[in-house]
Amino acid sequence: MKLTRKYKFIMYSILVLFSLYFLFPFIWALITALKTEGEVFSFPPKFIPDVPLFSNFMDAWNSQPFGIYFKNSMIVTVLTTIGQLISCSLVAYGFARYDFKYKNFLFILLLSTMMIPWDVTMIPLYMEFNLFGWINTLKPLIIPAFFGSAYNIFLLRQFLMNIPKDLENAARIDGANEFQIFYKIFLPIMKAPLTLIAVLNIILVWNDYLGPLIYLNDQSKYTMALGLASFQGVHELQIIPIMAMTLVMIIPPVIVFAFAQKYIVEGISGSIK
């Protein structure tokens, strides 16, 4: 494709304009995180702190056992992601590539689980987890992920539906069994959407706040998101550590995204051939 200069100029202006919207809050958060308590509240706002206080980051990190929170968050994030990848690929495959009795009913049922308001199912779910002895453990945050989530299943199904039917028919003629078809033919094709799901799940779980809040009790079980929220008391907001930890917290998902980009770029078709 040949790109004219005018086209390039327009493209870059649009890209920069959008970048401003997406980036500015981060820049402002960073500036705030580097200020002294006095500078944060000076008016007019200062765009460059006199002496950037990088120690604010250390102070925020050390003010709570963030090392433990980090470990807990990692455990939950990694395990749920594995669980989601296994369960969702299976379930989505079942819904996308087969016709069976009650399929539409079951699929609507699946979708409907996305619409359940957590406010009112949370207490009965709490009771159930309590019965299992799971309260104040990471289990309520991890184990359900091994049974799939409607959002991921639905997303994956949409991708799977878009693959021509000839693929498995050919394999069946070659004598492959159903699981082999799934495992050997479809899993490799699904690299891009599976990566997508992994990325989306990591972010969701990494930032999940209400789940940990409700099911975890003492600090040794807390996750990063809970630690971040505890800078916000009933009467007061500790703006500097909040900004600092917000920025720290986005690092792991951003790293994941950086690596994942490669697989997503390949797309789904790249691997069909």
Binding site: M122, I123, P124, Y126, M127, N130, I135, L213, I214, N217, D218, Q219, L226, A229, S230, Q232, G233, V234
Partner: peptide
Amino acid sequence: VVLEAYGGDYDTKITAGIGAKDAP
């Protein structure tokens, strides 16, 4: 005694605990 610090959403957490008969 085990301390449980719920922070800003104290009421939500307490309500859930009481509702599920698992209050501190």
